[in-house]
Design a protein around this nucleic acid. Structure first.
Length: 809
DNA sequence: CTTACACGGGG
DNA sequence: GGGTACGTGTAAG
């Protein structure tokens, strides 16, 4: 039997452990159970034979190793004789491992920290989201085939399988600002899927006549109906936006209180909370829960999406180019209580959330499925990995295939020591501050990967004893040398990734952009690019298994060498370099025409070794450069890219956010700092003149602990105390909305809760000096303005005319 | 200056 | 599977 491998997990039933594989075939789901899998670790010891005998006799609470054997492996390229210790079940490992560690002669232990389901995929060479072939006894159970395997599964080609992809979203009653899962009910669940489903389930009948609305009796029934719908639509993939952090934890708590069993699993199991660092990822057996936000966030951290905010609305607008209806969360309660037109809007909004999540998810899934193929771990795990983890799991798999032992994750002292090790990073040029027009941006195509491959950078090749000094390239500034005879695990794995990408790029030329084949190949090459670009980061990440400081610093050293050379070449060519960061170069064309950029590119590339190559990133009409890492540019399509200015958050008043946004637009779209300055002056004038609506002055800050526990009494704490004094119940998690009032004393003392603000005067000074000006000054000061030029003060405006001649810009 | 606390996504 | 988020900003003290 063959099918697409969707997911795998590890489970134990009546003390019998097994690995389970979920397969899809022609719309049918198959669960394949494999009781035959290995759980093991490696021991490296001074006298392997003597230690082997001792390990074989270890016993803890009646548990003993299943088997011990001597095997030949390598560690960081060097041959080692290792003791492979196998266990009867994964749960036997922790106690026995500690007992083995304490045996005399034991030097190191490896691969004890690889979870069974992942170990299984690696050892069996299976790739999720690909075909596999299985053999075994079949039992039918509730529409799902269960196969008990009597042979190991093997990779196989299967025709493309259509997956049922569903998204959902919840709306929650939130009278306290932040919803409290112990009190506030879920009022709506919206659903959408790739087969046309559009539904909102709610438990108040607003009689809006919207055909997608289904009314149930109460919240309990709403949750039951949600579970029923997921089963009915038979979702293979269940998506949401920020569901790991919000929706699932909330649903779980409500379900617990209402005594609803969240049996979303294909085997009838409940949603599992898998602890993952600070968050909890929810796992559904047999279905893949994908949090679209984690995918978006991943792309944001690697710089493939750059937005000011990564909320659903903005991400949807950026990725799909469409607007979705907005609904302020502060208005939920009112809409729910009063019904009518607002309830109608809320239902519409709820559906649009599920729909937008579905559309974004459908855009991103192909990429993450390709990452799954590369890394060879489940899409559930891969969609939640950091770039460093992607590389790590790929290397673990590659290491296994070549008999290389996997370094353990660093813990305790080893990790702490790494934190103290620092090394010089990339070269970042101090920008030529101010507004620049007619820009061309160049960047090195995968600079760090190219360096790693070209110079064979790997812990096993560092300062080898087999090469003559004259044969090897020396790392600039350090004098390290890397072997030229044998390939290291890291460069050889990376080289395969890069070569495959080159092949796919060639393949893509055979197809029309936009065609199915083209898009598939594009996702593949993109996933390879992301993976390749993550190798360097991993080398320098203290938590990584393959962390090697000398390798990481060699990469950056070579990087600085290449980019500085390029800057000098650009200057010689006649371009003004306004900024450079790591592998990129921002230059002014100086009226030379865009074709000159191509000539420069060729000149540089002719001078570069190996696979290191400079590329043209794009042309920009205008850009404002503020400091290192802080700039904004606008391209030919009027798209604004902003870097490093993202400090507009909810604990800033709306007036500050709005003014900053308007200033950037004026500067970039219209090229007019004068107009921007006018916007700021008008705003400060409005603030001083009391013409700003209170709405725009509210600052929202969350109470993160009980009010008594605060040692630092910030404004929101004072405002919360004032609320409590008049009988409002105050608890952690509440968002306190306050306004700064005019008067004497610290900012904290003058914080007044919004609901008490009637008849009070706000503090114009605070809003000008601590809100609006800080938000816009970073931009304005590089354009030649001083803060006194931007405050509303008639005398200063006259002075401004002398100080800045904006007419020239 | 150091220390404390909050931001993000979600509602 | 996991003892542990993270990088960065403001205000209080």
């Amino acid at each position: 039997m063959e099918g697409l491998l969707l997911d795998n997990d590890f489970a134990e039933e009546e003390d019998k452990p097994y690995v389970r594989l979920f397969l899809k075939r022609d719309g049918e789901t198959i669960a394949a159970l494999d009781p035959n899998f290995e759980t093991y670790l490696y021991v490296v010891a001074d006298h392997p034979n003597r230690v082997l005998k001792m390990v074989g006799k270890v016993e803890v609470h009646g548990l003993r190793p299943k088997s011990v054997e001597l095997v030949n492996r390598t560690f960081l390229g060097k041959k080692v004789e290792a003791i492979k210790v196998a266990f009867n079940r994964p749960s036997d490992m922790p106690d026995l491992r500690h007992a083995i560690r304490d045996l005399p002669g034991v030097k190191e232990m490896y691969e004890f920290d690889i979870p069974p389901a992942r170990r299984y995929l690696i050892d069996r060479c299976l790739t999720p989201m690909s075909g596999i072939s299985i053999k075994g006894k079949t039992i039918d159970q509730d529409g799902m085939k269960i196969v008990v395997l009597d042979e190991p599964p093997v990779p196989a080609k299967v025709p493309e399988q259509e997956l049922k992809i569903m998204s959902f979203d919840i709306e929650v009653y939130n009278p306290a600002g932040s919803p409290r899962p112990d009190k506030d009910p879920i009022i709506m669940v919206s659903l959408a899927d790739n087969r046309g489903l559009k539904k909102v389930i709610t438990w108040k009948d607003f009689k809006t006549g919207q055909d997608f609305v289904e009314v149930v009796k109460d919240e309990k029934e709403l949750l039951e109906r949600f579970v029923e719908m997921v089963k009915e639509r038979d979702a293979d993939i269940l998506m949401g936006y920020n569901t790991d952090l919000f929706d699932f934890p909330y649903i779980r708590e409500r379900a617990r209180r209402l005594k609803v069993k969240l049996k979303l699993g294909r085997d009838g199991s409940e949603v599992l909370a898998r602890k993952k660092r600070f968050a909890t990822a929810s796992r559904i057996r047999g279905r893949v829960h994908i949090d679209v936000y984690t995918m978006v966030n991943f792309l944001a951290t690697i710089g493939h999406i750059r937005l000011i905010h990564y909320n659903l609305e903005e991400v949807y607008k950026y990725m799909l180019g469409k607007d979705k209806p907005d609904f302020e969360f502060t208005e939920f309660v009112d809409a729910w209580e009063r019904g009518g037109e607002r309830a109608r809007d809320l239902l519409e909004y709820s559906l649009s959330d599920a729909q937008a999540t579905l559309e974004i998810g459908l855009e991103l899934l192909p990429l993450f499925f390709e990452l799954t193929h590369i890394v060879r771990q489940s899409p559930f795990d891969v969609s939640r990995m950091t770039p460093g983890q992607l590389v790590e799991w790929l290397l673990i798999s590659e290491a296994h295939n070549v008999g290389e032992l996997v370094p353990a994750r660093p813990v305790g002292e080893e990790f702490e020591e790494r934190l103290d090790e620092t090394y010089v990073g990339a070269y970042v040029m101090e920008p030529v501050k101010g507004l620049h027009e007619d820009l061309v941006v160049f960047d090195y195509r995968s600079l760090y990967p190219s360096i790693i491959v070209t110079h064979n950078i790997d812990p096993s090749t560092l300062n080898c004893d087999c090469c003559k000094p004259s044969q090897v390239v020396t790392v600039p500034e350090f004098g390290y040398k890397f072997c030229t005879n044998r390939r290291g695990l890291i460069p050889s794995t990376l080289e395969k990734i890069i070569q495959e990408r080159v092949r796919l790029k060639g393949e893509m030329k055979k197809y029309k952009p936009g065609s199915r084949e083209y898009r598939q190949l594009d996702a593949q090459q993109w996933a390879l690019k992301i993976t390749a670009n993550s190798f360097y980061g991993m080398l320098g990440y203290p938590r990584a298994r393959w962390y090697f400081k000398q390798c990481a610093e060699s990469v950056t050293s070579f990087g600085r060498h290449y980019i500085k050379n390029t800057i000098n070449m650009a200057k010689d060519f006649g371009f003004d370099v306004v900024y450079s960061d790591t592998d990129s170069l921002f230059t002014k064309l100086n009226g030379k025409g865009r074709d000159s950029a191509m000539r420069f590119l060729k000149q540089v590339n002719d001078s570069l070794p190996g696979i290191i190559e400079l590329e043209l990133e794009g042309f920009y009409q205008r850009g404002v450069f503020i400091t290192k890492k802080r700039y904004a540019m606008i391209d030919d399509e009027d798209r604004i890219v902003v870097k490093g200015l993202e400090f507009v958050r909810r604990d800033w008043a709306a007036i500050a956010k709005k003014t900053q946004e308007a200033v950037l637009k004026a500067v970039l779209r219209d090229g007019s700092p004068k107009e921007a300055a006018e916007i700021v002056r008008k705003t400060t004038k409005d603030i001083v003149g009391g013409r700003v609506s209170l709405e725009d002055l509210i600052i929202y800050t969350q109470l993160t602990m009980a009010i008594e526990n605060y040692r630092a009494i910030g404004p929101h704490v004072v405002a919360a105390k004032k609320l409590r004094a008049k009988g409002v119940e105050i608890e952690p998690g509440m968002i306190i909305a306050y306004i700064e009032a005019k008067g004497t004393g610290s900012i904290s003392e003058r914080a007044v809760p919004v609901e008490d603000f009637k008849g009070v005067e706000y503090d114009p000074d605070y809003y000008v000096e601590n809100q609006v000006l800080p938000a816009v000054m970073r931009i304005m000061e590089v354009l030649g303005y001083k803060d006194e030029d931007l405050r509303y003060e008639k005398a200063k405006q006259v002075k401004l005319a002398e100080f800045v001649d904006d007419s020239k810009i």
